[in-house]
Amino acid sequence: MVENRPFLTVLRHVVLLAGVAIVLFPVWVAFVASTHPQPTLLSGVAPLWPGDRLVENYSQLLSAGMAQAGGTPVGLMLFNSFVMALLIATGKIAVSLISAFAIVYFRFPFRMIAFWIIFLTLMLPVEVRILPTFEVVADLGMLNSYAGLTIPLIASATATFLFRQFYLTVPDQLAEAARMDGAGPMRFFFDILVPLSRTNIAAIFVIMFLFGWNQYLWPLLVTTDESFTTIVMGIYRMVNVSDEQPQWHLVMATATLALLPPVAVVLVMQRLFVKGLVETEK
């Protein structure tokens, strides 16, 4: 826009600031609540400024957890969630990279059928196939393990699709040049295709990490052992304690903690992502 009217500039900023406030206010409230003792929060008036219990609340959570909700330390929950999200994201990327490679660069029998089968899985997310998948995971003895938490979530048509679309834009001559240079298919894949997919990998990693982090239903089903509780499950368990007032200050602190790793991933990856977008190669 080349228009330069002070009134419009002010209006634009007011609208933007209002938007930011709407998004950030709940986060602020959660953070503020996590710094007060429980009675303050139950008094009926929600405080708007941080209290004095920041260190106590958080250190209690991280080391001991909340006794009423099983007493699993939040540190462990964070670790579990992190491992699960990381395994799902890297697993998805690894599987999708290689399956897209097979579909785009090789002529094998039933290639299109393979492609459509992968495509069909888009319509079958975990929630739809939850009972049979649970049965399989249970029979394989993968309940209460990281394998059980992550493997059923790894197969991903979305990422395969994205990589396929990207590979189709890589000029054929690049593959031919590599062939002339004596690179076999796997060498071409690792030396040329994967480095070229760097920015796509970053983007998909962000999306899939968040997807993995936010999983609720599946971890709830396959883990019964406290040591595999993830943070999202943990929050819910804290809210629904029986025969007692919810410990809102601890719940809010947990929520705040749960927010941090995804934010960190987005911030770190976004740099790579933008860098990749600016330096177009090919």
């Binding site: 031919e176 040049a177 240079d181 004596g182 760097r198």
Partner: peptide, 30 residues
């Protein structure tokens, strides 16, 4: 024979240089 075993080298129309490699690595790859 595979291209690499034919003892030939080829220049492509759009050069087909590996975009993520330096000039040195492009030449050294083969």
């Amino acid at each position: 024979l595979e291209p690499k075993d034919r003892n030939i080298a080829m220049v492509f129309q759009n050069y087909a240089l590996y975009p993520h490699m330096s000039v040195y690595d492009n030449m050294a790859y083969g």
